[in-house]
Design a protein around this nucleic acid. Sequence first.
DNA 1: TTCGCTGCAAAGCTTTTGCAGTGGT
DNA 2: ACCACTGCAAAAGCTTTGCAGCGAA
Lengths: 159, 159
Amino acid sequence: MKRYIFVRQLIRDRGVRLTAQRELVLRRALAHLHFTAEQLVEDVRRVDPSVARASVYRALALLHELGVVEKHDFHYGAPNYEVTEGKAHHDHLMCTQCGEIIEFQEPRVERLQAEIVKRYGYQLLSHTHKLYGLCPACQRTQKPHSAKPPALHVTEMVS
Amino acid sequence: MKRYIFVRQLIRDRGVRLTAQRELVLRRALAHLHFTAEQLVEDVRRVDPSVARASVYRALALLHELGVVEKHDFHYGAPNYEVTEGKAHHDHLMCTQCGEIIEFQEPRVERLQAEIVKRYGYQLLSHTHKLYGLCPACQRTQKPHSAKPPALHVTEMVS
DNA sequence: TTCGCTGCAAAGCTTTTGCAGTGGT
DNA sequence: ACCACTGCAAAAGCTTTGCAGCGAA
């Protein structure tokens, strides 16, 4: 709820209009941990079928510009989005078989990153750090060669 | 050259046919550090215009299955491919303004990764670690807001 | 000779865009 | 009352696929 109100204010401060469509897209985005653009379209249209696919994409782009939403490519299926606003920084560990995503924090890695960029004279702006593996459950039911994209799922229902 | 011969053998061992198209795609892929599928298509067809776009995509998919080629998404333009076969493992540092890509190694990060997955009972299969920032040159010519995709470039000419 | 691979063109998916009408401020 | 935003449908990437013919083994 706090995040919702905060982002609404961000939109207003941006000087763009706070429309019903944008509010709805924001509310539905906040209801998921990780989601694809298409999942968000479906979710939004389940609530209000009159909202156009294009409006969802445009609202998502706006949220991305505002720094509220991050885009992830887990290389298994379509890109994923995540509302990172108001959440502590974290990276991701994903099961390549069932699609489970775990968010982790590791300050020691962050420190090493700073060291690495310094080595090349770079100014660090952002980073992505993704670990892929098998979750405990999938290690047991392990198929020798499941080369293909597992479903990317979504769980949390409120924000 | 050693890599070329090695991969040819990989293809034969796979029990699939070693066609002229596959050999050409492999040679041109080896000639670049990082490339998009479309860049590879252009490059291949510059050498032999009779090769179909679809054949390049199919050959690239084969090389990916063989573990010879890796796919990267730098979030600036189309996904990038890289022939990693025969190269030491490394991760990437990219300038978001000019598109320069630096490959770095940091064993200490690798060690922390092993520790992280153990924490969650995962079995680590692979990872991606990408740092985004401004290279020394672009820090000087810095535009306040260059939100858009820089050209992804390609340099090396032989392999 | 066989059947896996290719070229071609068409289709598929996801995302973007042009435009006329609508609604926030 | 403006003009930014929306819905719609068409277009625009990028990648995959069906199919008939070709050519590596």
